[in-house]
Computed example of a mutant assay.
Amino acid sequence: MSKPFKLGLIVAVISVAIDQIFKINMVEFMAGHPYGIEVTSFFRLVMVWNSGVSFGMFSGGEQTRLFLIAISTVISLILLVWLYRSDRKFLSTGIGLVLGGAVGNIIDRIHYGRVADFFDFDLYFMRWPAFNIADIAIVCGVAILLVDSLFFDEKSTKNEA
């Protein structure tokens, strides 16, 4: 096993663990706060169940849930293969974050039948849909993948020469 692969796996496992520990505690805690908790004027902790994908799109019943579990699992397996082939720690960290976030949300769909979201930002110019730690891991991982692709990927540096 290469060092970048091990690093990516560690990042993925830590991401899943943090996400799931937080969700287990928050689902129980938020049961006592059905209207949410205002933390600041623009941030609240809420309990939102998302049976769809981003922004609640494609919400549906049992068939949709099974389809989303299957698609997420296939994507996770592709990410695992990509991680195995990765030879850079930065790239592996990004893949590990995306993988960990995806697995965290798969666990939710299997365990709860939908994904638990808690963070609700209402900025003056826009309201962002509620999200969770797995979503944060995915977004951070994708940002790392973009930076890696733009600045550290051998293909992108060869094109400049």
Rank of each mutant, 00 (worst) to 15 (best):
G32R: 01
G56R: 09
W82E: 05
A116K: 02
D108K: 12
T73M: 11
L9D: 05
V27R: 08
R85A: 10
I136R: 04
F55K: 05
M126F: 14
I21Y: 08
G94N: 09
A116V: 08
L91S: 12
M57S: 10
I110D: 03
S2C: 05
R65W: 10
D153N: 15
V147L: 14
E28I: 11
P4M: 08
N105V: 03
C140I: 15
R114Q: 13
W128A: 06
G100M: 05
K6C: 05
L66Y: 15
K23A: 05
D87G: 07
Y124S: 14
V74H: 00
G94I: 02
R85T: 09
T64K: 01
N25S: 13
R114L: 03
T157A: 12
L45V: 02
F5M: 09
A31I: 02
S41F: 03
K158I: 09
R44E: 08
F125E: 04
Q20K: 13
S54M: 07
K3R: 14
F5C: 06
G113F: 05
A143F: 15
H111G: 03
V13A: 06
D122A: 12
A12G: 03
R88Y: 06
D135N: 13
I10E: 05
F29K: 05
M57R: 09
A116R: 01
L9Q: 08
Y124W: 09
V11T: 10
G141H: 12
I106R: 12
L9F: 10
S54T: 08
W49L: 11
S72P: 05
D153E: 15
Y112C: 02
R44G: 05
Q63L: 15
R127M: 02
L150G: 12
S92A: 14
E154H: 11
